[in-house]
Lab assay of single mutants.
Amino acid sequence: YDEVAAQGEVVRKLKAEKSPKAKINEAVECLLSLKAQYKEKTGKEYIPGQPP
């Protein structure tokens, strides 16, 4: 859960800094992968601010 939240912060920071699109896309792919792992382990969708 904490990893997903941390990666979400990374994506937000990159977007706020107007980073190159390729770098943002890479961070988003990582975030989506973490969300998929979270769902696989818990059986639930990741919802920000609602730990399992």
Rank of each mutant, 00 (worst) to 15 (best):
Leu31Asp: 10
Ala36Arg: 13
Lys35Asp: 03
Val10Ala: 15
Glu9Ser: 12
Glu45Val: 08
Cys30Glu: 15
Arg12Ala: 11
Lys15Glu: 12
Ala22Tyr: 07
Ser33Leu: 11
Gln37Leu: 09
Leu32Arg: 13
Ile47Leu: 11
Tyr38Gly: 04
Lys13Trp: 01
Glu3Asp: 15
Ile24Phe: 04
Ala5Gln: 05
Gly43Trp: 00
Ala6Ile: 10
Ser33His: 12
Ala5Trp: 07
Ser33Arg: 13
Val28Asn: 11
Leu34Cys: 04
Ala16His: 11
Glu17Ser: 11
Gly8Ile: 12
Tyr46Asn: 02
Lys15Thr: 04
Gln37Pro: 00
Val11Thr: 04
Lys41Phe: 08
Leu32Tyr: 11
Glu9Leu: 10
Glu3Lys: 15
Lys39Ala: 09
Glu9Trp: 05
Cys30Asp: 10
Ile47Asp: 09
Ala22Phe: 11
Ala27Val: 00
Leu34Thr: 07
Val10Phe: 12
Leu14Phe: 09
Glu3Val: 05
Leu14Met: 06
Glu29Tyr: 06
Glu3Gly: 00
Pro20Ser: 14
Lys44Leu: 00
Val11Lys: 01
Glu40Gly: 03
Ala5Pro: 01
Lys18Gly: 12
Gly43Asp: 08
Tyr46Ala: 05
Ala27Cys: 00
Ala36Ile: 03
Gln7Met: 07
Tyr38Arg: 03
Ile47Gly: 07
Tyr38Asp: 05
Pro20Cys: 09
Gln50Tyr: 14
Asp2Tyr: 13
Lys18Asn: 12
Gln50Glu: 15
Lys41Gly: 05
Gly49Ser: 11
Val10Arg: 13
Leu31Lys: 03
Val10Lys: 14
Tyr38Lys: 06
Ala22Cys: 10
Pro20Ala: 10
Lys35Met: 10
Ser19Phe: 11
Glu17Tyr: 03
Ala6Gln: 15
Val11Leu: 08
Glu9Arg: 13
Lys18Ala: 08
Ala5Thr: 12
Pro52Arg: 11
Cys30Gln: 14
Ala5Ile: 04
Lys39His: 03
Ala27Pro: 03
Lys13Asn: 04
Lys15Phe: 02
Val28Ser: 08
Tyr1Pro: 00
Glu45Ser: 07
Lys13Cys: 01
Lys18Val: 02
Glu3Met: 15
Ile24Trp: 01
Arg12Asn: 06
Lys35Trp: 00
Glu17Leu: 11
Asp2Glu: 10
Gly43Phe: 01
Lys15Trp: 08
Gly43Asn: 08
Lys35Glu: 08
Gly8Lys: 11
Ala27Gly: 03
Gln37Trp: 00
Lys21Tyr: 06
Asp2Gly: 08
Ala16Ile: 07
Ala27Ile: 00
Glu29His: 10
Gln7Val: 00
Glu3Asn: 14
Lys21Arg: 13
Ser33Glu: 14
Ile24Tyr: 12
Gly43Glu: 06
Lys41Ser: 12
Gly43Ile: 04
Ala27Leu: 00
Ala6Arg: 14
Cys30Met: 15
Ala16Glu: 14
Ser33Trp: 06
Gly43Pro: 01
Gln7Ser: 01
Gln7Leu: 01
Tyr1Leu: 09
Gly8Met: 15
Glu45Tyr: 04
Lys23Pro: 00
